[in-house]
């Protein structure tokens, strides 16, 4: 088992003909991801590296039975692409695009909340989702991942790779790794994914990587305390970040006193989460809590 994606996931790439879409679609195929279609408005009927391209998502679904999309569309049009995936009622939409205006994402979320679609969104501004050995939907380097029992949820891209590498180096593989994205308004959040990991028999522990800004980590901690039965290891990036400065990610900004790294670490610790202070200790801590 695993969560979100597996070897039965049939993927459609939105923005397949762009340089990003084409490059990463090829990498995903190499990894073994089952890419069945592309959607590029105006380019229906063509092919990109052997993958058929459709004008609309509806057509792609009808002709190929795809159930998950990955979005590599430029920021000005990306929200519209996500809404098209939601409208087509896919199981999953992973949005890689960085730089989508917040107002556009607010509209996407209103549509998802008030409509009847079942589509779950990961991202935007994220590295994507990978179930090692089965399906890679994203831009992460596939080769550092190994199948296993540790679930990883993170706001960051490269810091997630760092965690994966450390966990692997201690002999633990990963069940599923999800980059939820560094934007203020995103799709699936920590709690949504923790809930899935709770019911996933393969997952024995979870690594939760957070950062300054917002309240998501604190809420996740409270939820873990009440509902989560597996050990959680956490690192919060930005312990040295100054107040009021945006640290790269649109959402990574300390605006009050309760969204600092220190406040989040304390809250998580109180909820029984194994918080590490140095990013170099993530792998070791996982090995420790799994007692192997």
């Amino acid at each position: 088992m695993s969560i979100l994606v597996n070897n039965r996931t049939k993927v459609v790439v939105q923005g397949l003909s762009g340089s990003q879409g084409r490059f990463h679609a090829a990498r995903m195929k190499e990894y073994g991801t089952n890419i069945v279609a592309g959607v590029v408005p105006g380019k229906g009927g063509t092919e990109v590296d052997g993958t058929p391209v459709f004008d609309t998502m509806m057509e792609a679904v009808r002709k190929t039975g795809c159930n998950a999309s990955i979005v590599y569309v430029p920021p000005a049009f990306a929200a519209d692409s996500v809404m098209e995936a939601v409208d087509a009622n896919l199981d999953l939409c992973v949005c890689i695009t960085e730089g989508i205006p917040v107002k556009d994402m607010l509209k996407v979320k209103r549509m998802m909340k008030t409509g009847t679609s079942r589509t779950m969104l990961v991202g935007p501004n994220c590295p994507g989702v990978i179930t090692p050995g089965e399906c890679k939907m994203g831009i992460m380097p596939g080769e550092i991942h190994t199948p296993g029992t540790v679930g990883i949820i993170s706001k960051s891209g490269t810091l997630t790779y760092e965690a994966v590498k450390q966990v692997s180096s201690f002999g633990f593989g990963q069940s599923t790794c999800i980059g939820i994205g560094g934007d203020p308004i995103i799709g699936l959040k920590y709690i949504d994914l923790l809930e899935m990991f709770e019911y996933d028999a393969q997952t024995e522990a979870v690594v939760l990587i957070g950062e300054i800004g917002g309240q998501a980590e604190v809420k996740a901690g409270e939820w873990i305390k009440q509902n989560f039965s597996k050990p959680v290891v956490s690192f919060i990036a930005g312990q040295t970040a100054p107040k009021g400065k945006r640290m790269g990610h649109a959402g990574a900004i300390i605006s009050g006193g309760d969204d600092t790294a220190a406040a989040k670490m304390e809250a998580l610790e109180k909820c029984g989460v194994h918080v590490v202070h140095s990013p170099a200790d993530i792998g070791r801590k996982v090995a420790e809590v799994l007692g192997k």
Partner: peptide, 23 residues
């Protein structure tokens, strides 16, 4: 490369007793 890793890099410098000059 990457905002999360960049913040974590500053943090690890601090944890070894150093001070980052920038993000």
């Amino acid at each position: 490369n990457g905002a999360g890793l960049a913040m974590a890099t500053m943090d690890i410098i601090k944890s070894f007793g150093g001070q980052p000059a920038n993000f």
